[in-house]
Structures are given as structure tokens and as C-alpha cells.
């Protein structure tokens, strides 16, 4: 899947990032193409959400670069970064809706902040976005009254209300019932294609992500260990990819967290 440099929307090169002593990324390279649904996959704790925050400029890398539309995100001024973020949407794992505002006001929030629109126009725009996620009838509900799946759909409507060029999805399928999951899977693909977006999904839900992703990057031990279409990865001979895609409990990623031997722990000196 080689594309021209014009096709590349996000270009991550040699990215290194640590939290204290713990190395999260040790030279990550990946390219996200325009118009595609790209997935970053890996087990919990591999830094998938951290990677989204690095792309969005909320965290700074120790080394390496993140270019979006050819511009280094971490070399931008505060003003430039915020101008870029107006063209990026992000769906947080929790939805991150404002709990003191109704569904309508949550979706209207970016418009009220960035666009000086007459109230009737704003209302129509918000209702159209809510209609797209099937929640126009829930406009007056408060976030506390929504189910997890509904909250994520409202967050999705809010993420697309400024018509961004790209949406970052942080674990969109985690903790969803099958119906909500199916709805989100189809919405993400539909939004990407009808609104001409580029989508980046971080997830560990193999089946759902494989249904809609054009390209998958698999993270392990701070690096991208494999990338390709879901079909290509399903055929991969890598033991790591096989373990992840087939949900095997043991393999290159051990079942046990590193620890002294059980005998030493049970029979050794007591603290």
C-alpha cells in the first residue's frame, strides 16, 4: 500500500515517548493516508491512546516527529495548534460529554465557540448532526440519562459538527453491547465515506475494527510490528500478530506479568 506523499495525512517518524522510567514508544513509524479508515491496534497498555494524544499535540514526544498535512505538530505555536485542532475531531473513550449541558448544547458547543452563527442556523446544524447519529429525539436529555452507546454517538456528532478533515477515535467499541457496537461500526465507516474524512481508530477489538479498517498498524513493545490490510494481517506468520488476532491467552505477550518464581514468593523469606 504505497502512496504518494500527497496521500499522507499523518506522518509519524521515529517517535519515542516515556512515562518516567517506562518506555511507551521506542521509534514508532507510521503513515495515515487521506480518506482511509486506519486502525492502530494492540493490547491494553501498549500506548494506543498516548499515540492519539501525541498526534493531537496534547503530549510532546521525547524524540521523533508527528507531521499532519506536512506540518510538524510539535513545532507549531499555540495558535497554530488550535487552528489545526479545529479541523480534527476526537472521540474519547468515555465520550467526555459536558455533564452540565444537554445533548443539544454538547453538540452545539464547538459551534458556539468557533462560529458566530445565528441561532436558527446553529439549531439546524446541530439537529442534522444528531439526526446522522440517530439521536435527534434525545436532544433535550442530559448526559447522565444516556446509555454508554448513546453517549458515544452524541460525542461522535459533536466531533463532526465542525466538519473536520480527520477524526481520532479512542477505543470506540470498548464496553458496548452488540447493537451499539454494530451501530458505531457502521456509523464510523459511513461518516468517513460520506463526509470525505480520514479516520484513525485505536482499538483492541479485532473483529469490529477489521470490518471497517482499510489499513491496520499493530503496536507491540513500543514499535509498529506489522501493518497492512486486515486480510493481509490475518495471513501474517508473525507469532505476535497471530496471538493478538486469534485472542490466544499466551504467546509472545505472556499471560503472567513479570514476577519472581511462584516458589520464591511462597517459600522465600516473608516481608
Amino acid at each position: 500500500m504505497n502512496g504518494t506523499s500527497g496521500d499522507i495525512l499523518v506522518d509519524v517518524r521515529g517517535l519515542c515517548f516515556s512515562r518516567g522510567e517506562r518506555v511507551i514508544f521506542d521509534g514508532v513509524d507510521l503513515q495515515i493516508r487521506r480518506g482511509q479508515v486506519s486502525a492502530i491496534m494492540g493490547p491494553s497498555g501498549t500506548g494506543k491512546t498516548t499515540l492519539l494524544r501525541l498526534i493531537g499535540g496534547q503530549l510532546r514526544p521525547d524524540a521523533g516527529t508527528v507531521h499532519v498535512e506536512g506540518r510538524d505538530v510539535h513545532a507549531m505555536s499555540h495558535r497554530e495548534l488550535y487552528a489545526l485542532r479545529r479541523r480534527m475531531g476526537m472521540l474519547f473513550q468515555s465520550g467526555a460529554l459536558f455533564t452540565h449541558q444537554s445533548v443539544f448544547e454538547n453538540v452545539a458547543f464547538p459551534l458556539r465557540e468557533h462560529a458566530d452563527l445565528p441561532e436558527p442556523v446553529l439549531r439546524d446544524l446541530v439537529l442534522m448532526k444528531l439526526e446522522a447519529v440517530g439521536l435527534r429525539g434525545a436532544r433535550d436529555m442530559m448526559p447522565g440519562e444516556l446509555s454508554g452507546g448513546m453517549a458515544r454517538r452524541v460525542a461522535l456528532a459533536r466531533a463532526v459538527v465542525l466538519d473536520p478533515m480527520m477524526i481520532l477515535y479512542d477505543e470506540p467499541f470498548a464496553g458496548q453491547d452488540p447493537i451499539s457496537m454494530g451501530t458505531l461500526v457502521s456509523l464510523i465507516r459511513l461518516m468517513n465515506d460520506t463526509l470525505s474524512l480520514s479516520s484513525v481508530i485505536v482499538s483492541h477489538d479485532v473483529v469490529e475494527t477489521s470490518q471497517i479498517a482499510d489499513e491496520v498498524f499493530v503496536l507491540s513493545e513500543g514499535r509498529v510490528v506489522e501493518s497492512g490490510s486486515p486480510a493481509e494481517l490475518a495471513q501474517s506468520e508473525s507469532a505476535w500478530v497471530q496471538q493478538f488476532f486469534n485472542a490466544l491467552p499466551d504467546g509472545p505477550v505472556p499471560f503472567h506479568y513479570p514476577a519472581p518464581s511462584l516458589g520464591d514468593d511462597l517459600l522465600g523469606p516473608r516481608p
Partner: peptide, 18 residues
Amino acid sequence: TTEQLSSMEMMAVDPMRR
């Protein structure tokens, strides 16, 4: 804790000002 401040930043709204 509920990532509302982070989401505000990603919507290009500065939580320090808002």
C-alpha cells in the same frame, strides 16, 4: 477525570480561558 478538559482542548477551546 472524565476527560472533559482534554476534549475541550481537542475542540480547540482553551480550558484556561473557558
